[in-house]
Every structure is written in C-alpha cells, then in structure tokens.
Design a protein around this nucleic acid. Structure first.
Lengths: 181, 181
DNA sequence: CCTACCATGTAATTCGTTACATGATTAT
DNA sequence: ATAATCATGTAACGAATTACATGGTAGG
C-alpha cells in the first residue's frame, strides 16, 4: 500500500502535539512553510482516510465554552507507516517552477526594462523572505531555548536562508550585467 | 482572456526555431529543465488551443523520407499575447516542495542514521546537478560563442549553479553538526 | 533485425487550489 | 457590535503525470 505526500504530512504532524485538522494546518503553515504547503481541502479528506485505514483514531470532543472539535491520535500502524516512509530514500529532486527565470529566458528579444523590473521585484521578495527567516530564527532562539526539536527547525531554516541568499546574490550580479554591461 | 503557464511556455518556445510539439518538448527539457518541466500531455492540447484561438497557425508537412509533422508559427496576436504576459509582474514565489527537509523535520525523533543517509544522498544528487550545469555551460561557451541568446541562457544557468552550490554547502555544514556535534 | 529517434495524440487518474458553506468563542 | 480566531467540511475546477496507442525513418 502506498500513500501520497499529503498523508505522510498529516501523519508527521500528528507526531507533534497537533491533534486537529486546524492545528495541523497551523503547524505546517508556521514551521514547514518554506518547503511545504497544504490546504484544508487536503487535510480533512486525509484525516478521514487515516481513520478508515486504521492509521489514526478519532475522538469527538465537546468542551464547555469551546467549539466542538475532533482529535486524532496515531495508531501503532500509523507510526509504523510513517517511520517506514521516513526511512525510504528520497524519490525525486523536484524542479521548482521559477516564473522569473521563465520570463527572463523568453524575454531575451524584448526591451531590457521589463527584465530589470522583474529582477528588482524578485530581489525585493527574496529579501523579504530572508528577513522572515531571520525573524523566525530570532524568535525561536529567544522563546524556545530548551526545545530539542529546535535543532531540526533551525536546520530547515538554515536551508531557506542559504538558498535565498544565493538567489539574492544572483539578482545582484545579474542586475549588474544588465545595467553596466 | 487569461491563459495558463503551459500556453505561455508553448508560445515562448514558438519564438525560437522550434516548430513542432516534439521540438518544443526537447527545447524545454534541454534549456529550461532546471526551472520548468512539461509533458506531451500538456503540449499537444496547448498547440490545438493556440490554433483555435488564433495565436498560431498550423501547417501539415509531408516530406519525402521524413515522418509527417505539423509545424506551428506564431500569429501577430500570439506574439502580442506573449509579450503582454512577459511584461506583467510575477505573481507568486512558489514554494518548492523539498522532500529532504520534510523528512528531516519529521524524523527528529528517529535514529540519526536515516537522516545522515538522506543528507548524503541529497548531497550527491546536488553535486551531480551542479556538474550538469557546468557541463552545459562549457558546451554553450565552446559551441555557441556568437549566439545573442547565450547571455540569457547563461544567466538562468548561473541561477541554478548558485542555488545548488548553496544547497551543497548546507548539506556539508548540516552533516558536520550531525557527525561532530 | 532491432534500437534509437522522430512524431502525434488521448484517456484516466491524481493532485492541489479555490470557493463555498457553516457555526462557536474571544477579545476589543 | 464586530472582528479575529477556532473549527470542520465539500464541490468544482484546474493542472499535471502516466499509461496507452500509433507509426515512420535511420543507422548499426
């Protein structure tokens, strides 16, 4: 039996304190945002399937003064399925679809101003992204200094910082060649 | 009227000497491979739509001793639609889905060997990718020294090289922390 | 002969986003 | 009041991959 990435993402999220679909969405948005995205349209059907396939149990909870919610917990089978997948070698290096490079490539016979504008805009966004990473990093270091998970979180952040920094440097040298060359 | 990226990719390809669906696939696989992918299942329906919408003309060609083929040429309208899109600001910075970071994040309570294995495997692939970029670069510099398109090709290659190099460095420092720390 | 390459296409399936729909609670 | 947050879901749509199906030509 083979599952898709969404299932593993939800299984993974359920190894943390996240117990509801809502909380899973939050976790992934906040912690994995720069290398993984997910929508409610994926999460809720996935949770349903987990229960059907005995990978998780569901618990309906109605607490006084709180909205009704459904808490999910991994079963042994669920943990096994996740672990097995985590051990498996990585399939593909997926190609990121980069619209800037795409436009750059096909704009080679068009006026250079457009390209320069795109590059400046892209640079700005990359810089914002970099600032966001730094912000999260500082937040983590001051607010969660004991957490053992911290290391792993910082490692994925470091990846984002390094690749973003490299992309920023690319925009700099590329803008230089266009403006000076 | 708004089109999807596939349409623009095919329009863009038709600004080069590519005239058939087969040639378009080859161009994108060879030149845009590190930031764009496409399949025949996208190309042929797109070409059909281009003709329907008057963005391209079709020409059935039967040459002696050659397989039958269909040559497409951009119309003025096609060129206009492409140019207009190329000028438009970039929508989104899409999040690349990174399975290594994903597994790393969720494997934080699992034995470290798995993670180290994944990192080494990833590093190897990144190094291969980097070599490929260098290979293409050298090929371009020796074989197409006059081409004006060359600059743009080299620029997109440079992006790939820089971000890949940054990712390689990340694997190095991360492996270090796991092995020494 | 057989493999590689040139060439075109469709259908099924999977995957993901977006819009829609609902409703309780908390803080301002 | 009302906005923000917590909470759950479905339906429609769009996009992309994969498998399938076909057939010619060139070179070893």
């Amino acid at each position: 039996m083979t599952y898709n990435h969404t299932i593993y993402a939800v299984l993974g999220a359920l190894t943390t304190e996240c117990r509801t679909g809502y909380a899973i969405k939050q976790l992934i948005d906040q912690s994995l945002n720069h290398f993984w995205k997910i929508s409610y349209g994926q999460i809720y059907p996935a949770l349903k399937q987990l229960v059907t396939d005995d990978l998780a149990t569901i618990e309906h909870i109605s607490e006084e003064g709180k909205p009704q919610r459904k808490e999910y917990h991994l079963t042994q089978k669920g943990e096994d399925v996740l672990k097995k997948w985590l051990e498996k070698p990585i399939d593909q290096i997926p190609t990121e679809k980069n619209e800037v490079l795409f436009k750059l490539f096909f704009a080679r016979h068009l006026p250079m101003e457009h390209t320069i504008r795109h590059l400046r805009e892209y640079q700005k966004r990359l810089q914002d992204q970099y600032s966001t990473y730094k912000g999260i990093e500082n937040m983590l270091l001051t607010n969660h200094p004991k957490d053992t998970d911290l290391t792993y979180w910082l490692i994925t952040l470091d990846y984002g910082k390094r690749t973003t920094q490299a992309a920023i440097e690319w925009t700099e040298v590329t803008l230089d060649t266009f403006l000076k060359g």
